[in-house]
């Protein structure tokens, strides 16, 4: 049944994927000026030879109707052909893929750290509602939401790298080359990502746990004589984890933006940093590719979240 549901959901994703790719395609089309020149990276009046210009124009298929152009472009994308990067002079996919790995470390690590901290903290502040602990947790949430990420990252650099000298402020080392150095480099950016996500997760975890605590099934469990600890940490937590899952899913789009900022502050060689550099060098082939990767990540994670509901909550049935 789960397989059938997965297939159904995948089919339902098709219109969304079409919309997303169309947005990316047409945003590139509305670029002021000649799209050929933009694709060649020659925006500021650079001279391009006639042959190069014609070759690009032909490659882009600009003589054909817009809708044909779109489907051609989409077909190339599906085959992994994102175009040739203007600054790197290699296929855009080859530029993006190696940078995807460091970003994944940051995203997955940050998310795991956030959940490990925020879920128990949220539960505790819900159980000890209106105590000092709860106020501390809520203040953390308010600060976490209000403080701009890039500023938080800069302050973290100031404290841990500049003043204490515990960790490097920028850069990256591959884990297979030097694992200790990798951990040192990845700790600060990962912590900034985690703090940011943790604030939101904590907020919803606390709220949902509070709501769940007044549900009938909790009264039933208590009436059965189950210990308070068992009721709260098993029954209630299991139910409110659905909220956590949803929040994590909803945070994915936000997380991509967050990654871009954090990677930039720490000169961390992931796709977010690549995105910003490509924007600055006007390498729109790479920009397009990175945006598509980010969006499809969002879509896939949300699909996974939908499927996970079934695992966490047996009440959820799929037709």
């Amino acid at each position: 049944m789960l397989i059938r549901y997965t297939a159904l959901r995948l089919v339902q994703l098709i219109p969304m994927a079409l919309v997303v790719t169309m947005v990316v395609f047409f945003v590139m089309m509305i670029v002021p000026g000649d799209p050929v020149m933009v694709m060649l990276g020659a925006v500021d009046g650079a001279q391009i030879s006639r042959e190069v210009y014609d070759a690009m124009r032909l490659r882009l298929g600009l003589d054909r109707p817009l809708i044909v152009q779109y489907f051609n472009w989409l077909w190339n994308m599906l085959q992994g052909d994102l175009g040739i990067s203007i600054t790197h002079r290699t296929p855009a996919l080859e530029v993006i893929l190696p940078r995807l790995v460091p970003t994944m470390y940051l995203m997955v690590g940050g998310l795991i750290m956030a959940v490990i901290v925020a879920v128990p903290a949220g539960v505790l502040s819900a159980i000890h509602n209106n105590t000092k602990w709860d106020h501390l947790a809520t203040s953390f949430v308010v600060l976490g939401i209000s403080v701009p990420t890039f500023w938080l990252a800069l302050v973290a650099v100031l404290i841990f790298a500049v003043h204490l000298g515990w960790l490097p402020s920028i850069g990256y080392t591959k884990p297979q080359e030097d694992f200790i150095d990798f951990v040192k480099h990845v700790t600060l950016p990962m912590a900034v990502v985690a703090l940011n996500i943790a604030a939101t997760v904590l907020r919803f975890q606390r709220q949902d746990f509070l709501d769940q605590m007044h549900q009938d099934y909790v009264r039933t469990a208590r009436a059965k004589g189950l210990s308070e600890r068992l009721v709260l940490w098993k029954h209630v937590l299991r139910n409110s984890l659905i909220t956590t899952l949803t929040v994590v899913g909803l945070q994915m789009a936000y997380l991509s933006g967050l990654i871009t900022i954090v990677e930039t502050v720490f000169n961390y060689p992931g796709i977010g940093y690549l995105l910003l550099n490509s924007i600055h060098t006007r390498d729109f082939v790479v920009v397009q590719g990175v945006v598509l990767f980010m969006v499809f990540l969002v879509i896939i994670v949300n699909l996974a979240v939908d499927l996970l509901y079934a695992v966490v909550d047996p009440r959820v049935h799929y037709q």
């Binding site: 969304m16 919309v19 947005v23 789009a253 991509s256 910003l276 945006v291 980010m294 969002v298």
Partner: peptide, 15 residues
């Protein structure tokens, strides 16, 4: 739904 899949910051950056 399609627009919501875009990270708001990334979309704004591109635009």
């Amino acid at each position: 739904e399609g627009i919501m899949a875009f990270p708001s910051l990334v979309l704004a950056m591109a635009l």
